[in-house]
Design a protein around this nucleic acid. Sequence first.
DNA 1: TCCCAATACTTGAACTCTCAAACTCCCTGC
DNA 2: GCAGGGAGTTTGAGAGTTCAAGTATTGGGA
Lengths: 179, 179
Amino acid sequence: MNTAPTSAEEADAAAKPAGQTRWLTDDEQRIWRSYLHASMLLEDHLDRQLQRDAGMPHIYYGLLVGLAEAPGRRLRMTELAMKSKITRSRLSHAIARLEKNGWVRREDCPSDKRGQFAVLTDAGAEVLGRTAPGHVTAVRQAVFERLTPQQQEALGEIMEIVAEGLQPSDAGADLPWLR
Amino acid sequence: MNTAPTSAEEADAAAKPAGQTRWLTDDEQRIWRSYLHASMLLEDHLDRQLQRDAGMPHIYYGLLVGLAEAPGRRLRMTELAMKSKITRSRLSHAIARLEKNGWVRREDCPSDKRGQFAVLTDAGAEVLGRTAPGHVTAVRQAVFERLTPQQQEALGEIMEIVAEGLQPSDAGADLPWLR
DNA sequence: TCCCAATACTTGAACTCTCAAACTCCCTGC
DNA sequence: GCAGGGAGTTTGAGAGTTCAAGTATTGGGA
């Protein structure tokens, strides 16, 4: 199956024989599993919270927030995709769904006929305003209320570093930013 | 839409009016967004890595690992679900898929006729052995090689704390462990 | 012994995500 | 001007997830 890695960059990882693999130490294992465990529970928790209270998954909520912060409450599809770290394809489907809800509207870009703007509607802004408090509270309860200021700061730095290493990269077909 | 929160526990969060909401500070925002950003990129990265090299998503790989570590390479469905932090329903679908691949096999539980064991097959163990080195390397490169020992330790503690707060709880219909 | 709520797991439908293949339009070189 | 490669976005199909509902079996009490 994976005898033919597709990118030179990862050929190394995919082909490395078990004999010379540097496995995770017990400590690393413990840390990694804690991360997997917690990030999973957290994402599930927030997804359910928003699905219940706002009628959309966490990521869709993030899209509305992205638009709300943009000048004119509008963003080109590609910009929104980059800002939200998702593929254009995924965004297309997502916006189609949000459009059905009446929370977002598409508009043609006057200067580039290929382009589309995603625009937050009043109804969209209203949902956001109505559900943001509950969401912030959920995040606060799940994360910030449990961590010391030092831990919060450390978390920020750590995740910043991790994200850096996974960033854009010039490769990737449909994913100029997602390798 | 969400004028009628379904659980008393979260009614508070859902109903809280914007006027008295404690929003995130700028620092908290920054930290939270770093977390969202990084966890998203990381999960995407590992999902693609495993899809490419092992032909299955990250979580399915985790299921095989769970079975490989269990005595007799087998676990009751519910136990595996708990260990993996997913719902039984999701596990049912997942095991069905892994069964088609020949990597897992179901066995009836002799002592409880309702029960089912998920058993890792030799083929399953083989895939795991063949792809584990690449996966570990990917995790190492994305996370451990970029963090200092102190940061690694901090990450472990932080995620431990977050997970604790989201843990089991007695509520929840199909989710004795996922609230 | 019989009843029945609880437990273990599965199923089906609706929804979301991924990947590859389209489409339309822009831009540069000839 | 007019290919032709590239950019911006969409589409469709296949795979995975969720939620609610369904089946089978168990463990206690009446």
